[in-house]
Design a protein around this nucleic acid. Sequence first.
DNA 1: CTAGGAGCTGGAGCCGACTCTAGATCAAGT
DNA 2: ACTTGATCTAGAGTCGGCTCCAGCTCCTAG
Lengths: 138, 138
Amino acid sequence: MRDVTPGLSIGQVAERTGLSVHALRFYEREGILIDPVRRGPGGRRVYGEGDVEWLTLCIVLRASGMPLPDIRRYTEFVRQGTGNEEERLALLRLHRERVTAQIDGLSRCMDLINHKVGVYEDLLDQGATDHPCSAPPS
Amino acid sequence: MRDVTPGLSIGQVAERTGLSVHALRFYEREGILIDPVRRGPGGRRVYGEGDVEWLTLCIVLRASGMPLPDIRRYTEFVRQGTGNEEERLALLRLHRERVTAQIDGLSRCMDLINHKVGVYEDLLDQGATDHPCSAPPS
DNA sequence: CTAGGAGCTGGAGCCGACTCTAGATCAAGT
DNA sequence: ACTTGATCTAGAGTCGGCTCCAGCTCCTAG
């Protein structure tokens, strides 16, 4: 009944997470994994399902713009175990604000882009019906 | 009545746009300006209001993740004058899709981050009221 | 006259996050 | 036995987007 999680090679983890094997080793060097990866025969890395889950979280944090040093700090808190939940929460809240700011910024850019798309669409419609002169947009 | 736009120095443009003077010269080298900057006595750059407006647009495009080469291509279309509105529109639409994808991605990250923030908030509330054991989150 | 400050050019440097290379080791298939 | 392919390490290279530096020219104020 034991050994339900048989251990994954770096290639398998790469496949599941979408990270490259290079990136996996790089993350490990950067201290992004919670505990040192186990090694199988020949010194090969052996990952568990827990590692994959953790990496999946890290990928989300990265994708939302958290810098690696911050991810490392968060990892260190988790590695230390319970007792620092406030700090973890503070990091997460800080990041949440950054993501909110990103989304807001992008939405404001979107408004302008939509506006310009609209202008050009109108211009082309109008041109199709052969309207007279008008100031060209930039 | 003429000369309403007296011409701006690179420093003034930097101040208005928020770009650095370095970045302004860099953008110029990259072909991001619609026409070559006029030069005043001593070979100094003289910008017009139109340049500032154009740069303002470019800043929005950059802020929303459009790469400089794409901005350059868009600039080239505008530089060529009317007749390529379809191409401009295509570039804008493509970019709009990228921005939409970015916002969607970030929103999905937000869901997870919010979830984790909620988990830690609950955990700390619960801890304050001295609840018994529970599995620690990652 | 001189000192400061802004501007000029060309080119080097930096940062983050990977990505790739070289050269070695190891396991499995033919 | 041999080849293939995955893995290992240490370290170098890449890329985008600036940023900074050296050494020069200007203009203006004191």
